[in-house]
Amino acid sequence: MSVKLGLIGGGVMAEAIISRLIARQLYLPDQVLVSEPQTPRREFLVEKYGIKVTSDNRTAAAASDVLLLAIKPQVFEAVVTELAAGSGNNGQAKKQLPLVISILAGVSLSQLQAAFAGQPVIRAMPNTPATVGAGITAIAAGIAVEPSHIELARAIFGAVGEVVEVPESLMDAVTGLSGSGPAYVAVMIEALADGGVAAGLPRAISSQLALSTVLGTAQLLQSSQLHPAQLKDRVTSPGGTTIAGITHLEGAGFRSAIIGAVQAAYRRSQELGK
């Protein structure tokens, strides 16, 4: 059976995507080929998922119907140079891929389209909850992308969570919000737990309460379609404990700090793309 999905890079995000695609039977194990330089990692992927592996990026690129780039942005140029160098091996032209998908932060569509001239390219930004199937991925389409390519990308990233389509001009903002956002939420959960400990709760119970509170609130907002302000108003009684806590948060600039964090990450993403 021919390879349908090739990946360059076999790290955590690549594994998350592979595991969910195979679990949902969108791809069979022998339809997936991962190029990964580390031997222990290749052996792990084979043992756990039964997929094909290689240490040669050119093999993954040439054999696949869809190529997913899941490498560090810092090695992008080196990988592209390697793929270009292999395009003329044995007098054969490099296979034209129907679709190239990149999850590299800071690597623009113009850079991707220059590297994969004439091929449809989609830039994607998933986030770490994708590893448990609860992520959200923003995708931006290149000039040669057709509706069928968008649907294919939606199916791939839909296996690890929700998918939204945005113009590329908004990808840095996506990075600042959903790409970096899990870290902000983790800091908030840690702070909630620390607050519980400061108020006298045992660490384990405080951590459990903090985590479940954030998880439950997110699920409630999603299922009820309430605006966050509406939910906040429902919990806030006149002269009660919640308004006392919110008053302290407002005085400490909590809301402004979160907004500022997204903006700072957005600016940094812009810098990385230059």
Rank of each mutant, 00 (worst) to 15 (best):
G133M: 04
H248N: 12
S102F: 07
A117R: 15
T213R: 04
L67E: 05
S108E: 05
V34Y: 00
A105S: 10
D172E: 11
L28P: 03
A62D: 15
T242R: 01
G6F: 09
L192A: 08
V214N: 02
I18Y: 03
P228S: 02
S148Q: 15
Q25L: 02
G91K: 03
I258G: 00
V12T: 12
A229K: 10
T81N: 12
T247F: 08
L109R: 00
V12Y: 01
L5I: 00
G251F: 01
A183D: 02
G142K: 05
A62K: 14
S108T: 12
I8P: 09
K274N: 14
L99N: 05
S148F: 15
S237Q: 06
I139M: 09
G176Q: 03
A199D: 06
A265C: 09
G161Q: 04
A62S: 15
S64T: 08
V185G: 08
G88R: 12
I189R: 00
L97H: 06
S206Q: 05
Q96D: 13
A70S: 13
V235R: 00
V107D: 00
Q74W: 09
T39K: 14
G161N: 05
T213Y: 03
P98S: 01
A115W: 07
M1F: 10
R255D: 06
S87R: 13
H248R: 15
G50S: 10
P37D: 02
L249D: 09
G142M: 00
G253W: 03
Q119C: 13
A84M: 14
Q270T: 12
P120A: 13
R255L: 09
A198S: 11
V235Q: 06
G181C: 08
Q222N: 13
E151H: 14
Y49I: 00
S87K: 13
P98F: 08
V197T: 08
Y266M: 13
E82T: 14
G50A: 02
T131A: 14
A144K: 11
G133K: 00
I156W: 03
H248I: 10
Q222F: 07
K232R: 15
I18V: 10
E15Y: 06
A84L: 13
Q225S: 12
G135I: 06
Q38F: 15
Q119Y: 09
L68Q: 05
Q31P: 00
V197Q: 02
V121D: 02
V46G: 04
G11N: 02
R203K: 06
L28R: 15
D233L: 01
P29Q: 05
A265F: 08
A124Y: 01
G91S: 04
A63P: 10
E146S: 13
R268I: 11
R154L: 05
E146L: 11
G88E: 13
G216T: 04
L177E: 01
T39M: 10
L5T: 08
L5R: 06
A257D: 08
I122D: 03
G142Y: 01
A252S: 14
A264F: 11
T236Q: 09
S207D: 12
